[in-house]
Design a protein around this nucleic acid. Structure first.
Length: 265
DNA sequence: GCGGACGTAGAGGGGTTTAG
DNA sequence: CTAAACCCCTCTACGTCCGC
């Protein structure tokens, strides 16, 4: 890893379901050596999402630990394999995500402004990575520390907490969708049921199921909104993306979009 | 069996609200 | 001010029912 180029680091990120970070890593020219030299503050500046910060720091930490233990060439493959096994999601029966959320990590008030701007480009490349097997008994992902505290205290989540819960659930579901951004109704149901079973107090007024499900659907919709390079998304936009008073996209437009998609590919 | 009416689910667009 | 959630509306697709 020490000798990796920026491109190799980016491939590794994609492999670790952190493809969303590729653009930032390329922008900041993070090579393998730079990756290993990152400290907490740098990771906070580089990576917006606390969940991604935690995963990234944990992967680096594990790499450093194992390279100390092994101290032999060609170890990377072994480590990658080990990490693959360890980082599999709870729903696939693997171990849960590392709970590395030190209190100082929450102090992200100085996050680089460019990172905030990046949120506009909400292409969840995660969706394109290796899909995990969806099982009926969906297991909730490991939430960040502050969310876990709120859940443990059974406090009614405020707006920002709701957003964070939804964001984590959406990111976790994406891993199972084989590149699609369209979960089935059953999948929405499974996730919301798992959430409400684990935390019944979230079922406000007995209509929590519908509220959480709608929030989750809206979140996926919001993720799809800016996407213009995905065949399935574009097809649905052509199909449904017009309202009374608006002209329907002509067949020519649809063809043009299809050609654009092929060119992008 | 066929075709129209109807209901429902699931898409999207876009306005409004909320929170940082 | 802006990003993101929330909410409402419209449209399409599909299944079911019913009359012919």
């Amino acid at each position: 890893m020490e000798t990796w180029s920026v491109d190799q680091v980016c491939s590794w990120l994609v492999e670790k379901n952190l493809g969303e970070l590729v653009h930032r890593f390329q922008e900041e020219e993070v090579s393998g050596a730079a990756l290993l030299a990152l400290n907490d503050r740098m990771v906070q500046q580089l990576v917006k999402k606390i969940g991604h910060q935690a995963v990234l720091m944990d992967l680096i930490k594990k790499y450093k630990q194992k390279s100390q233990e092994l101290k032999s060439p060609g170890e990377t493959a072994l480590i990658t394999q080990a990490e693959d096994e360890e980082s599999s999601s709870p729903a696939s029966g693997g171990k849960q995500m590392p709970s590395f959320y030190p209190a100082d990590n929450l102090d992200n008030g100085l996050i680089d402004h460019r990172v905030l701007k990046q949120r506009r480009n909400v292409r969840h490349i995660l969706a394109r990575n290796k899909a995990l097997q969806w099982t009926k008994s969906y297991v909730l992902p490991e939430f960040p520390y502050d969310v876990k505290c709120m859940l443990a205290e059974q406090k009614c989540p405020d707006h920002s907490m709701r957003i964070r819960i939804i964001e984590f659930l959406q990111a976790d579901m994406t891993k199972y969708l084989e590149g699609s951004l369209y979960p089935t109704t059953q999948q929405y149901n499974d996730v919301v049921n798992a959430l409400l079973q684990a935390h019944p107090f979230l079922d406000e007024d007995g209509c929590g199921f519908f509220l959480w499900k709608r929030a989750l659907k809206d979140r996926f919709k919001y993720v799809r909104r800016p996407i213009e390079d995905d065949e399935q998304v574009m097809r649905n936009k052509c199909k449904f993306g017009h309202r009374r008073g608006q002209t329907r996209k002509s067949l020519a437009d649809i063809r043009f979009n299809e050609i654009k998609i092929v060119q992008i590919k």
